[in-house]
């Protein structure tokens, strides 16, 4: 029932993302610090891709470039063929911290995008759909400080999904949750992605999370980030964490990350 309402409210229109020879560097007090080195790959529309790599390798930077919050020093990023310019509500970034606005209720936080785009009056009905989608019915009037970490991150997801994005960029969105909430939220993420049909790009340094969620895992080496492996997770959903194929892929991913000795 909920699913039927969603199909209508959050139509699936995942887009293709192509990263073309992207290099990027930060300027640290005059000394350039390279973070991305000639990265190229293409993400199929409507797919779920994980970017896996050691912390600080530059994968989050790549996500910010796709969002349009920063611009690559060289190379190009295209979404459905159009070069990425300014940030746009069709590509929404979800941060590791929920960063909800503490002065707004759950409902007002979810409404933020519609308000910013001036479509609150015509599209307001989507707010309830988004709140229901993440299972927070009845919490509309709560303030962020009254929510647990998992609930706050759900609100952040609803705040993103209410805009019917074509691309959802997830920057370690479950990184700060306790491990049980984290497992539950992973299943939720798969469900949300399947129901909405958008293109999902997840940055994580958790190998198991990447393999459990994504159809394809792109492994990055240490900074400056380069693609060291591109693994296809050829398992249907819902997946099982104990599946031998996941263990196999995990071994392979760890090998690419230089952690084979721990196997």
């Amino acid at each position: 029932m909920v699913t039927a309402a969603l199909k209508e409210d959050l139509p699936g229109a995942g887009r293709e993302i192509s990263i073309e020879a992207v290099s990027h560097r930060f300027d640290l007090e005059g000394a350039p610090l390279p973070v991305l080195d000639d990265v190229s790959f293409t993400i199929e529309p409507g797919s779920f891709v994980a970017l896996l790599g050691p912390s600080g390798c530059g994968k989050s930077t790549l996500l910010r470039l796709i969002a349009g919050l920063d611009h690559p020093a060289s190379g190009a990023i295209r979404v459905d063929g159009a070069q990425v310019g300014a940030p746009d509500p069709s590509r929404i970034l979800v941060f590791q911290d929920p960063t909800l606005f503490p002065w707004r209720t759950v409902r007002a936080n979810v409404a933020l995008g519609l308000e910013a785009q001036g479509t609150l009056k015509t599209e307001g009905h989507r707010i309830d759909a988004a709140i229901n989608l993440v299972g927070l019915q009845g919490f509309d009037k709560a303030y962020p400080h009254q929510l647990s970490g998992g609930m706050a991150q759900r609100v952040a997801l609803a705040r993103a999904l209410v805009n019917q994005p074509n691309v959802l960029l997830l920057d370690e969105p479950l990184g700060k949750l306790d491990s049980l909430t984290r497992l539950a939220m992973q299943t939720e993420l798969v469900r949300l992605w399947q129901q909405s049909g958008l293109t999902a790009v997840l940055v994580t340094h958790d190998v198991e999370e990447a393999l459990y969620l994504a159809q394809r895992v792109i492994v990055f080496g240490p900074r400056p980030a380069q693609v060291v492996a591109d693994l296809t997770v050829d398992l249907p959903y819902p997946r099982h964490r104990g599946h031998p194929r996941i263990a196999e892929l995990r071994h392979e991913a760890l090998r690419h990350l230089g952690l084979e000795a721990s196997w």
């Binding site: 919050l69 929404i92 970034l93």
Partner: peptide, 8 residues
């Protein structure tokens, strides 16, 4: 940044 990605 949140607000900008949401179209503010």
């Amino acid at each position: 940044e949140i607000a900008r990605t949401l179209g503010a």
